[in-house]
């Protein structure tokens, strides 16, 4: 996981990890929770707030509705 995390920190790369293992969550810049075919929550555990968060949250609200 350290290897993936270090690889992701490149301006031309992105890494998406599907996991059930909460022990590795601290590596994530963004955690999207899915349930029944929808994204029901998006969080950024490291506190790195980006300007698109509100937009994502509005998506989330629509998805929950």
């Amino acid at each position: 996981m350290e290897l993936l995390a270090s690889d992701a920190v490149q301006p031309d790369r992105a890494v998406v990890v599907v996991t059930h293992d909460s022990r590795v969550f601290h590596h994530a810049q963004s955690i999207s929770r899915m349930d029944d075919g929808r994204i029901v929550d998006v969080s950024r555990p490291n506190g790195s707030v980006r300007e698109d968060i509100e937009e994502v949250d509005s998506f989330h609200k629509e998805a929950v509705l």
Binding site: A5, A8, V17, Q29, S32
Partner: peptide
Amino acid sequence: KARFGELSFLVG
């Protein structure tokens, strides 16, 4: 969405 330079997790 997944941003460049970031590690994004999908959980559920």
